[in-house]
Design a protein around this nucleic acid. Structure first.
Lengths: 186, 186
DNA sequence: ATTTAATATATCGGTCCTATATAGGTTCGA
DNA sequence: TCGAACCTATATAGGACCGATATATTAAAT
């Protein structure tokens, strides 16, 4: 599923500029499970306009670049519906954290602990962020939000209960980093 | 973190060919949270060889292309360690399923139910796959496996308990698809 | 007074995925 | 026993996409 289709989806929520669509991927309703950047969004909107799946009205602004407001056409809406009837790709998940823990035995224990602490903080922040309903939520975004909340909660629990599994296989800290290893007071 | 670094990680598990590294991403220890394809793996191995981070010994085979067996050098191992001390990118998660449920109101209820059923089947399969320890598991892969199991389990529970939320907002099935809507026997 | 952030469009460079080419081997059911 | 399907193994072309940057102005924060 390419960025053109994602843009059609974005425009179901209402007309928008490329800039606003980008925000939907950065902070908005899509941010937790999709991504797309300017480098793909602007060309996609041009292509969609050429194909008649969206309309583009230029709004002149004083001392700013003209705002190009895109809106879905009926053909565009149907094209999205068609795409949603095709087989969907499986979720793609990419985690540098899990890659790193595979090599915990190559890292000092302090670094492994740091990685877990950072991740726990991120996951807790996400969990909290997804805990409260947003005024603009639709039933669909609400479902996605609750789904995310459930998954991040499970993630936090797992990390808190099992972090010792990787911390215990980490390499020793160098003596100067690990005062416990130095017996200075017999 | 680019494919070169992932290849260094792959070679920590032992020497391997490009073909075998690819399998690690498709079925092996990396498959659940990383991806890379031939189009990036082969060029990456060439680059790593040029930089002296891996060695390449060609093994001639009868009636087959020569096998190129790559192995980590000490500099390569250090390069990986260095990469693991840099800030790690946050997880990236891409879900066409969650994208689709945002537009459940544009789809017939039967399609939404189908999407949920498919996803539940996938998630249950993954959960089961991750439930049992593999003989080749290291502490690191074992941790990742248990992590995945926890997350997929939570996912299955959520879907089973909350699927009605999106099924109830789906569009009506067309009459010919939904016998209950047709009153043929008064 | 100065820097940072926000609004807004656009593109270049490089990375990466998808699909394909090549070429023989093995497995397994019809 | 014959052929289809899949496995081993390397390699690349084409296109999609991300990250960074350029441009230009205003608003807010410091």
């Amino acid at each position: 599923m390419q960025v053109t289709t994602l843009c059609l989806g974005a425009l179901v929520f209402g007309e928008a500029t490329g800039y606003e669509i980008n925000k939907m991927f950065e902070d908005g309703p899509f941010s937790h499970f999709l991504d797309a950047s300017y480098g793909s969004i602007y060309p996609a909107l041009t292509r969609l306009t050429d194909e008649g799946l969206v309309t583009c009205k230029e709004e002149q602004q004083e001392r700013r670049p003209d705002k190009k407001i895109y809106a879905l056409t009926e053909r565009g809406r149907q094209s999205l519906r068609d795409a949603l009837h095709m087989p969907l790709a499986a979720d793609k998940f990419r985690s540098e954290f899990l890659f790193a823990v595979l090599f915990a035995h190559l890292l000092p224990r302090s670094r492994v602990a740091e990685l877990v602490d950072q991740r726990l903080a991120e996951m807790k922040a996400k969990t909290e962020e997804l805990a409260t309903r947003d005024p603009g939520d639709t039933p669909g975004t609400d479902f996605a939000r609750l789904y995310g909340h459930a998954v991040y909660s499970a993630s936090v629990s797992f990390l808190e209960n099992n972090r010792h599994l990787i911390e215990d296989i980490a390499a020793d800290d160098k003596p100067q980093d690990n005062p416990k290893a130095v017996h200075t007071h017999v």
